[in-house]
């Protein structure tokens, strides 16, 4: 009798916190293909939220609406209390939404610090000309990288020399490094080995403990169960269910994805 009571109180407590991001009745069509149909879901601040679903369920499309690549045909997305209308990924970044892309979006021929500060370079104004402040960027990059659970070689080495896990760490570091409020990760460990996956997961958990909200798309159910606080299930362009991770099982999630179980 006491247990449900405390649970209820914590639940109502979490309800009092405003969601960081609310997707309301969002639809998006590409020609005759309806990629998203009336999607509703929300992300709480300071939590890891996972979106799962089969290939083509609309996960990536939905995430691209949040990161400014697509614009919904209808419906609204409210972020941090205000409806968003991003025209480009740049707008999303300025609002505080960072995306770690599946293809990592690093320039191999540039160094780690150059990648960390790409299009955010620190400059010293010399009249009308901005001169790169290389020293400051290097030392800042050093500091950003030193907090990583993953061993990254000197920030002056080129990304070409980095392993998959190290690259992923640099990508995540870049996304988390600039006072972002929400970090979106599309399949953050898909290309990694077992040990590297473990370290990247450790890194993701550290971001949460630092107060970042994180949204991950993953095909790896074990990972979703390990990492996330909240799971949303998508099927055929709809968001069909939402569960607190602690109150569901891998079996239930699989059943929801395949449609064997109705929400």
């Amino acid at each position: 009798m006491t247990t449900p009571l405390t649970k209820q109180s914590t639940e109502s407590g979490s309800r009092a916190v405003e969601p960081l991001l609310k997707v309301q009745d969002v639809s998006l069509s590409f020609g005759s293909v309806r990629a998203l149909r009336n999607v509703d879901l929300q992300l709480m601040p300071g939590e890891i939220t996972a979106i799962v679903g089969d290939n083509g369920a609309g996960k990536s499309t939905l995430v691209r609406c949040m990161s400014g690549i697509h614009r919904p045909s209808s419906g609204t997305i409210v972020f941090d209390g205000a409806p968003i209308d991003f025209r480009s990924p740049e707008d999303a970044r300025e609002a505080g939404i960072e995306t770690v892309h599946q293809n990592l979006a690093l320039v191999e021929d540039l160094t780690v610090w150059q990648n960390l500060f790409l299009n955010r370079e620190l400059v010293t104004k010399l009249g009308p000309v901005g001169i790169l402040n290389r020293r400051k960027m290097k030392s800042e990059a050093e500091r950003m990288v030193s907090t990583l659970a993953v061993n990254v070689p000197a920030v002056t080495s080129r990304v070409r020399r980095l392993s998959g896990g190290q690259r992923q760490a640099v990508s995540i570091c870049r996304a988390a490094g600039f006072s972002s409020k929400l970090v979106i990760m599309d399949e953050p460990t898909a290309a990694l080995g077992v040990q590297e996956t473990a370290r990247v997961e450790e890194l993701i958990q550290r971001l949460r403990s630092e107060g970042h909200a994180i949204l991950i798309i993953s095909h790896n159910f074990a990972q979703v169960m390990r990492l996330s606080d909240q799971v949303w299930v998508m099927r055929a362009g709809r968001c069909v269910a939402g569960r607190r991770t602690a109150q569901t099982t891998g079996e239930e999630i699989v059943a929801l994805i395949t449609g064997a179980q109705a929400a």
Binding site: P89, H101, A105, L118, N119, R120
Partner: peptide
Amino acid sequence: AAGGSEDAARATG
């Protein structure tokens, strides 16, 4: 950056 990887450069705006 644009020469190294157009996609990566574009993704950073």
